[in-house]
Nucleic acid binder design. Sequence first.
DNA 1: GTGTCCGCCATTTTT
DNA 2: TGGCGGACAC
Length: 762
Amino acid sequence: MADPFDLDDFDDGPAPAGGSHPLSAQAAAAARPDPSPLLEGLNPEQREAVLHTEGPLLVLAGAGTGKTRVLTTRLAWILAGGMAWPGQILAVTFTNKAAREMKERIGRLIGGMVEGMTWLGTFHSIGVKILQRHAELAGLKSGFSILDTDDQLRLLKQVMEAEKIDEKRHPARQMAGLIDDWKNRGLAPDDLPETEAGAFAGGRAGTVYASYQRRLKEINAVDFGDLLLEPLRLLRSNPDLLEEYRRRFRYMLVDEYQDTNVAQYMLLRLLAGKNGNICCVGDDDQSIYGWRGAQVENILRFERDFPGARTIRLERNYRSTAHILAAASHLISHNRGRLGKTLHSQIGDGEKVVLRAHWDDAEEARAIADDLEALRGAGGRLSDTAVLVRATFQMRALEERFIEIGLPYRVIGGPRFYERMEVRDALAYLRVIHSPDHDLAFERIINVPKRGIGAASVKKMHAFARMRGISLFRAAELMLPDLPARARSGLKALLADFARWRAQVDAMPPSELAETVLDESGYAAMWKSDNSPKAQGRLENLKELVRSMEEFDTLAGFLEHVSLVMAADEAADGDRVSVMTMHAAKGLEFDTVFLPGWEEGLFPHQRALDETGEAGLEEERRLAYVAITRAKRRAIISFAHNRRVHNLWQTALPSRFIDELPPEHVEVLREDAGPSGFSPSPVHERGGFAGYGGARDPGTGPLIEARAEPRRAEPCPYEIGQRIFHQKFGYGIITGMEGDRLTIEFEHTGTKRIMAGFVKAA
DNA sequence: GTGTCCGCCATTTTT
DNA sequence: TGGCGGACAC
């Protein structure tokens, strides 16, 4: 790339000098369009947040206050105004998605200049970048690999086995959690306080951590935690390097600051130094990731950390109605540890938040489904709606009901694309092709599909590899003659395959190579011959993987991208209601939001209370705040008296959060009783809810009146006796139909009534 | 080396 | 109840 400002030159050329360098300032002014139109349409606070470029700045951006707009405009302003080159801005986000979106939006504002923003990305991707530049300083070789959680666990197990630690008493999972936690706190093995080093694995947690780190270096790999920890150590122990980066990053911008953990925080402070132009954007009320290391305190003490810092509050909310905001604000005011801000709706009162009691979770699901149907009948779009739950098991009752009445839905979240077994397997093949010494990848697929190479043989190869200090792959080559016949022939074929594939790497595009590999390895065939309903989906995913590779020119390029990103979000097709966890909903918005399951024990979750007490409760409350503020026009909160958890019936009281809602902004609806007759006595026992019920005449009708005509049945493309396939239930035969509702006898899951739109011909 | 059975566990999830 | 991992038997 011919970009003269690319960061690879570390000579730290002068900034394009805002005002301090008259000549280039003039030149810049002449060459650039007037940046002031960027400010059009911003409110005074937003404008100030954009313009306050020098010195530390905290932007407290409440939900729906135009945070992203400020963020992107600010960057565009800096660039368009010639205050820094693209490569001199550090902009960090938490997710790849956020980084991508930011890039797109800036691109729309200022065009191609965004291409030079090589330091726009997640904390982790920035960490990789720094590490790649100075790998040797961190005890790594160039081209080190990044282990995902699965690889990490496998490696850790090996280490623990070598340390003779009883895995039953001290699960590797837990150990991995500890290590992760330490890394998130910026603690290398040497930094561990005595008490923590001895807290696990019979007092040898510290030892295990140290040997695990040693092993990582041996195999030239890092885990996710290292992507923060190692750069931190690097910059700490190399003042010259730190100085270089400090000079390079003229402006720093951090999104979702309330989610930073200790390591990220230290990294930022290190880079910002005393006089850095660091701008952190966040909302203390939306800090919901404490359980994975985020420290709300980081945002709470910003002004102390950066003396002379300016704080700007964005409080004009452009998303939600006044009733919704009032409900959310009143609820969150019960938290003590917060900076405090008041959201003002810019779009009017709207409807009150609806509160509804149900007999059980099935009835709750039915009510939600009915509302959605009515809403759709009235011309509303399902894609403007969402159901947000606290825990994924709540989704089951909802899904069951949605399937039953044929309501299109989409579950957001769940295992990410790159975490799916089949994708990881395929990637493992490609990784081994690319780097033969990627032991963990090789081990993953050495016997997938089965080729007669068992654990015993692999273990032997491992020992051999370690003794000789060679890779597993090399060990396999050398040991080939000494293996039992079956393993020998299987391995021999596999090694020959790899040799052939490697020879083809440069001869064909990566996607084609992937197809060849999946085909010739027998991996695709393995799933094709699998009759379980899931196999179909797995093959789809493999195809999707191949498709996603088409935009890459080299295998190396693809793999690099994949270690960090691997964004293959399923296409958002069709008009469907979204079902997701409250956590997953952060940052999203919908016209209508359903919030089921507001019961003590579930929300706030008992475990949060047990494990972190008052702090845990406050985080749950912030989660409630996040959930409510996702709604633009309508929020429907509900709870059930009886809920099936692990197939046991449990009785629950309404959530304390319900008591914390302001009665004047809430309308109480009571659904008709379930089969055994609904009596709200448990509700009345808890003071707060009784207040609502008594003061207001609870309506009984559906939440949203259906006004449109009943939907007409589409001509159905299927016939009785036809064999079909359903995503969830697998294969079946149509035994009856009534309009577009089919009765289907599934091969494995029994007879069900399903909407025609959910099945396809088999 | 592969298949099966048993016992355990069961918030939230990104990189 | 259901999914997963580990142990054990063939």
